[in-house]
Design a binder for these strands. Structure first.
Length: 260
DNA sequence: ATGGTAGAGTGTCTA
């Protein structure tokens, strides 16, 4: 089974590229972030004609998450118990949708950006991650994948220029500690072992021609529970999808192959 | 510190 995650930056403006991506790489399950569409705005026809079912959550033009699957979508959940995600002053957004697809529990996650380190959204980001970790702890014993845009670059090697991000979000010690806490609990970065070398970026800002200059960051991750990690046969970052301008999302898709 | 680009949808907000 082949699963992927992609911050698509509007599913409506890029539906042709989504469908091409699914076909080009023979994807079974695709988790999307920043769909920027309500459920009633989703472009479903083409996806359904390709054999995919869609589960999505989105309530405004900035966020939104979705799961696209051709191996079933069961037990769909939006958010989870005890976790903010709906209706709170800083959180009137859809940032997590989970479902069981082909026997694997997959969560499409769009971690809060944090904006600036003196912004309330920065603290909301850390709190959101803490609650996600609490929610995800019981899932360690199942085949679970936590995938999406984490808005954290966990290592210096994950940033094109650390000096450019001094005193900025995505690289602060508390954010890195929040990410590392998932690994400490037993979740595994299942992509890095299969992408050796320096080309690990998954995101290149639209500004300043950062894609063609390869000034990017690694902020999109697929974390697997131990049993899921044992099934991983390979992984890759579809850099070409990002580099094929114009019309690209600012993020590249990340793909993982599972045995069985 | 600021600004650069892109997408939502017309006012800016978000990233």
């Amino acid at each position: 089974m082949r699963i992927a995650t992609w911050n698509v930056n509007s599913i409506r403006s890029r539906i042709d590229r989504v469908e091409a991506f699914l076909q080009r790489h023979d994807i079974d399950v695709l988790a999307l972030q920043e769909t920027k569409a309500r459920e009633d705005q989703l472009p479903l026809m083409g996806l359904q004609s390709l054999g995919y079912d869609v589960a999505a959550a989105g309530i405004n033009q900035w966020n939104g998450v979705a799961l696209i699957s051709r191996v079933g979508i069961e037990d769909i959940q939006v958010g989870f118990d005890g976790m903010p995600g709906w209706g709170e002053p800083l959180a009137a957004e859809a940032r997590a949708i989970g479902a069981t697809c082909g026997g694997v529990r997959i969560w499409s996650l769009y971690v809060p950006n944090g904006r600036k380190i003196d912004d309330p959204h920065y603290h909301y980001k850390l709190d959101w991650l803490s609650r996600l970790r609490d929610a995800a702890r019981p899932w360690l014993g199942e085949d679970t994948a936590l995938v999406g845009d984490w808005n954290i670059a966990p290592q210096d090697e994950d940033v094109f220029d650390m000096a450019a991000y001094a005193n900025d979000t995505h690289v602060t010690p508390p954010e890195r500690e929040a990410f590392a806490a998932f690994l400490d609990e037993g979740y595994v970065d299942v992509v890095r072992p299969h992408t050796p070398g320096p080309d690990v970026f998954t995101y290149w800002d639209y500004y300043r021609q950062r894609a063609i200059r390869n000034r990017g960051m690694r902020i999109d991750f697929i974390l697997g529970s131990p049993s899921l990690a044992e099934r991983v046969k390979g992984a890759f970052i579809d850099r070409d999808e990002r580099m094929n301008e114009p019309g690209a999302s600012d993020h590249a898709p990340v793909v993982v192959d599972l045995a069985g």
